[in-house]
Amino acid sequence: MLDLLQNLGRRGLGVFERLGRASLLLVQILSGLHTLLPRPRLVIQQVFSVGVLSLVIIVVSGTFVGMVLGLQGYNTLVDFGAEESLGVVVALSLVRELGPVVTALLFAGRAGSALTAEIGLMKATEQLSALEMMAVDPVRRVLAPRFIAGFISMPLLAAIFSAVGVLGGYFVGVGLLGVDEGAYWSQMQDKVDLYDDVYNGVIKSLAFGWVATWIAVFEGHDAVPTSEGVSRATTRTVVYTSLAVLGLDFVLTALMFGD
């Protein structure tokens, strides 16, 4: 019994310890951001690897999600004779929730895990140490550009997700199921508010981008420098980012869309 408590206690302290380390790392990253201004190339390179290379999965997923929304939405609405509102259902679901959240989850799986693995591997092969000994701060040179790239890319990816999703819903609803084209767009335009919905969705994806990239970069930097350690760190990135995004989504939704 006592052992169990001891274990729990140690685990608990461990959590705080990691959180503390992660926060310190974040402060280090933020304080070094200004050094990136004269070297945009570093950030651009990372936006490519984090954003551009995620485009395929985001576009494909967005299209499918939009199409499914069109299908399911139609099936439910048609019972109420309200299938003209399909556009609203698809657009609001995407812009408010699915766009930011699903994009963040996909990001964690594709880009987040890649970041963690890359940084962890650099740690294991002593590249980070070598940078330090060459008087180059690895946090500023390696971590900061990746952090900024993730933060910038996330809202763009989420917007692309929502946009192709709406088009996917259009394809299924109007193209295949016969919903009136005019009704699809006009009802949507009527009910989707720029500030309440689109703007809030962007805020969400910025918050998710912050959290997802922070976790990915921290886990890589904190990984045990062995192959097993890197693999565990990558798993942790995906799991923790997913949990954090979903939890944060609840909090943000309550704040933004609650009364």
Binding site: L55, A159, I160, V166, W185, Q189, D190, V192, D197
Partner: peptide, 16 residues
């Protein structure tokens, strides 16, 4: 593309 998507969301989807 990202900005265009945002733009599209703003123009065609919302009540801008």
């Amino acid at each position: 593309a990202g900005l265009a998507a945002l733009f599209m969301l703003a123009m065609k989807v919302s009540n801008l």
